Amino acid sequence: MVTTKKQRVVVGLSGGVDSAVSAWLLKAMGHEVVGIFMKNWEDDDDDEHCSSRQDFLDAASVADVIGIEIEHVNFAAEYKDRVFAEFLREYQAGRTPNPDVLCNAEIKFKAFLDHAMRLGAEKIATGHYARVRERDGGFQLLKGLDPLKDQSYFLHRLNQDQLGKTIFPVGELPKTEVRRLAAEIKLPNAKKKDSTGICFIGERPFRDFLNRYLSHAPGPIKDDRGRTLGQHVGLSFYTLGQRQGLGIGGVKDKKAARGGGEHAPWYVARKDLDTNTLVVVQGHEHPWLQYRSLVADDVAWVGGVAPPAGPLAAKTRYRQADAPCSLAAPDEQGFALEFPPEALQWAVTPGQSAVLYDGEVCLGGGVIASAELGATAGTTHRAPAEVAAR
């Protein structure tokens, strides 16, 4: 726990077990705890696709068991302006954004934080698996101690002011212990499954949802030899490394099946907006899916200034192991990363976040703007851009 001084702490109660145990831990420490449930989506919000109504009932039940007040706050307008609008712009531009990163920066640690301060809070708390450490007059964002649940990747855009006002009570606990505590204190949501995805999509098919908001035009799907395999339904509906939903599962070619034989699955390797072409390759280890460098912009540094260039570790997507890298040209606008041959990055995707680490310390990161294929990509086949242009 970050602080032992008794304070007024406003906790974001999502209806899930992590935030529930966070609130209980803070109350057990003697803090004055108030719960807030954030409603972030209203358009076609229904029980079939979005669980916000049930989530609030669960959060209210938790508050009742713990013995704290709970307030229902609607941030749907802020979410639509600051998160969803950017989400659509990025998809329309052919990139794949990460709305969880933007939601944390714009809603949970900005709109929610501002609201909590107006309620007289000294700190806010959430159920994220991360930690805050005060060091040399500043604040560091640390990984959660449970490596399977660490969520620092999604929090890398937090600044010093935000971290200084934030507590992550479960950041030092393994998820198994959080579940055990929830059962021990008889929380009503002790066995509730972890939420996945984002509420405005919920359980509905992702493509069907985007289809209502994005313009799209069908175009060719080509392989690494320039052969047309089928038609895509619109480039915005695909992301690099995607395997499912390509509609070409029956196309086999032993010679083209790099890294997996004739029955190797197909993966999206490139989206070319100029020619409206989707380029796919066969086999997870295909050279066109292996990247040796990237450039990121729209950066956010936890410490307020860019770290010095040199060796660090990075994640180019959530739930991957830290990869060794060399940081070059870091500043307040962008940076470049170079990965060694033994740590080429798979399907580096523009729009996603590249997050930097020095051991357990999350330094910040940026939005991937471009990436360069690894040295092993020199094959007898044309480059992905040449294939798309044919």
Results as ranks from 00 to 15, higher is better:
353 S>K: 04
89 R>C: 10
302 V>R: 07
99 P>Y: 01
288 W>D: 15
50 C>W: 09
234 G>K: 02
153 Y>F: 14
173 L>Q: 11
281 V>C: 13
183 A>H: 13
189 N>Y: 00
267 Y>M: 03
251 V>D: 13
361 V>Q: 14
85 A>F: 01
314 A>F: 12
372 E>S: 09
103 C>E: 11
372 E>M: 07
313 A>P: 01
347 A>L: 08
96 T>Y: 03
312 L>F: 13
202 G>W: 12
276 N>V: 13
306 A>W: 08
334 G>R: 09
38 M>C: 14
301 W>I: 07
53 R>M: 04
309 A>C: 05
233 V>M: 07
186 K>Y: 12
209 F>C: 03
182 A>S: 15
295 V>W: 03
299 V>P: 09
363 L>Q: 01
336 A>T: 15
107 I>F: 00
310 G>R: 03
196 T>F: 08
90 E>G: 09
384 P>F: 05
275 T>I: 02
125 A>H: 10
128 H>Q: 13
9 V>G: 05
293 S>Q: 15
33 V>Y: 07
267 Y>Q: 06
247 G>D: 08
123 K>Y: 14
195 S>P: 00
311 P>F: 02
141 L>H: 06
85 A>G: 00
332 E>C: 03
288 W>S: 06
269 A>L: 05
240 L>F: 03
78 E>T: 13
270 R>N: 10
334 G>S: 10
185 I>E: 11
192 K>T: 06
99 P>E: 00
383 A>L: 04
70 I>E: 15
99 P>M: 01
57 L>Q: 14
283 G>N: 08
269 A>H: 12
381 H>I: 06
236 S>P: 13
385 A>M: 07
207 R>G: 09
49 H>V: 07
8 R>Q: 08
264 A>S: 15
9 V>Y: 11
11 V>C: 09
41 W>S: 02
36 I>V: 15
45 D>M: 09
64 D>Y: 00
132 V>E: 15
125 A>L: 08
377 A>C: 11
147 P>Q: 06
149 K>Y: 00
220 P>C: 00
276 N>P: 11
226 G>Y: 09
231 Q>V: 08
321 A>P: 09
233 V>D: 15
164 G>L: 01
93 A>L: 01
292 R>L: 01
219 G>Q: 11
180 R>G: 04
386 E>G: 08
220 P>I: 06
125 A>G: 11
329 A>C: 02
231 Q>P: 04
290 Q>V: 11
10 V>H: 12
30 G>N: 10
213 Y>A: 02
135 R>E: 14
51 S>G: 05
18 D>Q: 02
259 G>H: 14
298 D>M: 04
341 P>D: 15
169 P>F: 02
180 R>P: 04
63 A>T: 00
283 G>C: 06
156 H>F: 07
239 T>G: 11
56 F>D: 08
240 L>A: 07
283 G>M: 09
141 L>A: 02
312 L>Y: 15
146 D>R: 01
176 T>I: 12
82 R>P: 07
100 D>H: 05
132 V>N: 12
211 N>E: 11
332 E>T: 13
53 R>Y: 10
